[in-house]
């Protein structure tokens, strides 16, 4: 009897604790999104009514929409490059015996251990030295540097022996190397390629410091939002932040629903 009661009190405490932490986790997001609909000039209580005017201002802001398009381009292209390079390297290192393979793997994942600020700064100083201008291209190069190790690690970890057997079979039946790669390996590796692509997309989409250091006139969305912060608290910044958050959540949910669902036991 006493044990049962203790159990019940434990469950109630657990529920309270979980509710408190979830509250803490969601508080800033809820405040951000709620006051993006504020019908007034300040994103602080009291809530004065529901309005979409800040979203309208957002869409009318040329600099902001340009930054949004830039962000999408940088995210798409840098992720495509990161996945391609990472996949090819994973294939080479998983399927062939190369001298110094351990060292190569260590080199490929090394950027994961260094903070974005330092990676961005190194690129900035180097690009300055060779006269390469600060631009979206420069930021994109930086995004490939941070995302390729992740793509490589994900794809490499999923390259198993049964896929190697299928590749051998294809080769025995006369397929050329590129045919094996394009018609056998890529379709088999599709889930992990997809996962690394979307993960790269979300990281590139949210990345600030490298873009901040390496872009100049054309900037990405997080940099433009950073510029907006100078005007202080403003419902328009809330609207921009809510939009970024919404797009990130859509990307994550797509990843969750398409790739991760397959791995779940039925």
């Amino acid at each position: 009897m006493r044990a049962g009661q203790g159990m019940r009190i434990g469950n109630i405490l657990a529920a309270f604790y979980a509710a408190a932490i979830y509250g803490f986790i969601f508080l800033p997001v809820v405040v951000l999104v709620l006051f993006s609909f504020q019908d007034g000039r300040f994103p602080i209580p009291p809530f004065q009514g529901f309005s979409l005017r800040w979203y309208e201002e957002l869409l009318a802001d040329r600099r902001l929409t340009a930054a949004l398009v830039n962000s999408v381009f940088v995210a798409l292209l840098s992720s495509a490059a990161a996945v391609t390079l990472g996949f090819l390297a994973a294939y080479g290192l998983a399927r062939f015996r190369l001298p110094g393979a351990g060292l190569q793997k260590a080199l490929l994942v090394a950027p994961l251990t260094v903070s974005y600020l330092i990676i961005g700064m190194g690129l900035l100083i180097t690009f300055n030295a060779i006269g390469f201008p600060r631009s979206l291209l420069a930021a994109g190069i930086g995004h490939v540097v941070i995302n390729m190790p992740l793509c490589f690690a994900i794809v490499f970890s999923q390259m198993g022996e049964h896929q190697a057997n299928a590749e051998r079979a294809a080769r025995d039946l006369g397929a050329r190397e590129w045919q094996v790669l394009a018609l056998v390996t890529v379709p088999m590796m599709w889930p992990s390629l997809f996962a690394s692509f979307f993960l790269s997309m979300t990281f590139s989409w949210d990345e600030f410091i490298i873009s901040f250091l390496l872009t100049r006139f054309d900037v990405t969305l997080p940099v433009e939002i950073w510029n907006m912060l100078r005007s202080g608290l403003n419902p328009k910044t809330n609207a921009a932040g809510s939009l970024v958050f919404g797009i990130s959540v859509v990307l994550v949910l797509m990843l969750e629903l398409t790739v991760l669902r397959r791995r779940r036991p039925a």
Partner: peptide
């Protein structure tokens, strides 16, 4: 539990300023 994890650094910090 990890949904707000995907807000960008800039946006998340700004949201805490609001709070």
């Amino acid at each position: 539990a990890i949904l707000p994890f995907w807000t960008s650094y800039v946006v998340r910090s700004y949201a805490w300023v609001l709070v």
